[in-house]
């Protein structure tokens, strides 16, 4: 795999960083990331992963862009209202960097579709908005031995960590063995 001249120019400030360089940039180009959620977290996550040149990005979300999303889900603009979020985010990412591939999965992540998706990607990034999806994602990432970069927010507080049991790290269940009872759920 090589970079073309446009890519070399585009990523030149990366290529001159010793921590990235040509080999790092090619690692990015060869890599694939599956993002769960194309909303508040998924917008900046996808836009940056695309801009830096992650070669293949998968997007999972089944929601459509609503007017009330626009003030924080910055990949979606007023004209995207009513469109599937995965399509709107894909278009924004590709507008920023047409050299990469963005694959959209306009589905709800379920027990019977999660594993076939996870095996296609190197890294899973969870920005979902409910506990069911978070435990499903954790377990499926564990069974498919993929690192899970997890972020969640509530009001003005955020939590970020990487679950990587295959390298000796904890998983989501090590951190929180159970979700809150329904009545206590801070959505």
């Amino acid at each position: 795999m090589k970079l073309n001249n446009e890519e070399i120019n585009r990523y030149s400030r990366h290529l001159t960083l010793p921590e990235v360089g040509m080999s790092g940039q090619l690692d990015l180009k060869k890599s694939s990331v599956l993002m769960i959620g194309a909303g508040g977290l998924g917008s900046p996550l996808g836009m940056y992963l695309g801009a830096v040149g992650v070669g293949r990005i998968g997007l999972v979300d089944f929601d459509v862009v609503d007017h009330t999303n626009l003030h924080r889900q910055i990949a979606h603009t007023t004209s995207d209202e009513g469109q599937p979020k995965v399509e709107s985010l894909r278009d924004t990412i590709l507008a920023g960097n047409p050299n990469i591939e963005v694959e959209i999965h306009n589905i709800r992540l379920e027990r019977d579709n999660v594993q076939e998706l996870f095996v296609q990607y190197d890294i899973i990034a969870d920005g979902s908005d409910n506990f069911e999806t978070r435990y499903l994602t954790n377990d499926a990432a564990y069974f498919s031995k993929k690192p899970l970069v997890s972020a969640s927010i509530f009001r003005f507080q955020g939590q970020i960590t990487i679950f990587s049991p295959e390298t000796g790290g904890p998983c989501y269940r090590c951190l929180y063995s159970e979700p809150p009872p329904v009545a206590l759920v801070p959505n």
């Binding site: 917008s43 900046p44 996550l45 940056y48 924080r72 910055i74 990034a125 920005g127 970069v149 970020i160």
Partner: peptide
Amino acid sequence: MLPGVVGLIQATEVIKLIL
């Protein structure tokens, strides 16, 4: 604003893993 900050930290960690 909050999801922006948190999503960018998440992106940074993904990129560090790849590199």
